[in-house]
């Protein structure tokens, strides 16, 4: 939101001049995304019922899987990957401040320890 150069770096190319004619994810991509979403969800639930659940790596593994799903939906279904950079910035600004706030609050309430 702040950078003039980023804006200047985008010439008034046709791709941005009319917002609706941007590149699009395709039918095929949509279905692959759905496939991976289903698969990852299945793995998440499966892992929940295995002894791996007791491992200290369980939570981080699940967080990574959930982050992958999150990213896929945002990138393809919300087509942020193909859209104007302004939308990406607006979303990432909110998302990053929200994430940092969650982490800070968890730390302050003793749910996270700095350095493990």
């Amino acid at each position: 939101m702040s950078d003039q150069n980023t804006q200047a770096a985008h010439p008034p190319a046709p791709a941005h001049a009319t917002a609706d004619h941007h590149e699009h994810p395709t039918w095929k991509q949509y279905k692959w995304v759905a496939f991976w979403l289903t698969l990852i969800t299945a793995v998440e639930v499966w892992v929940y019922y295995t002894p791996f659940k007791e491992s200290s790596l369980f939570a981080p593994t699940l967080l990574v899987m959930s982050a992958v799903k999150f990213t896929m939906v945002v990138a393809y279904y919300m087509h942020i990957k193909y859209d104007h950079w302004i939308f990406k910035r607006l979303f990432l600004l909110g998302l990053s401040i929200a994430t940092v706030t969650i982490l800070a609050l968890l730390f302050l309430f003793g749910k996270l320890k700095i350095g493990g």
Binding site: F87, L90, F91, G94, L95, I97, A98, T101, I102
Partner: peptide, 12 residues
């Protein structure tokens, strides 16, 4: 998109 950014904070 600005609204969605704001909603991130709500759910956070």
């Amino acid at each position: 998109w600005a609204f969605i950014g704001s909603e991130c904070m709500l759910f956070a």
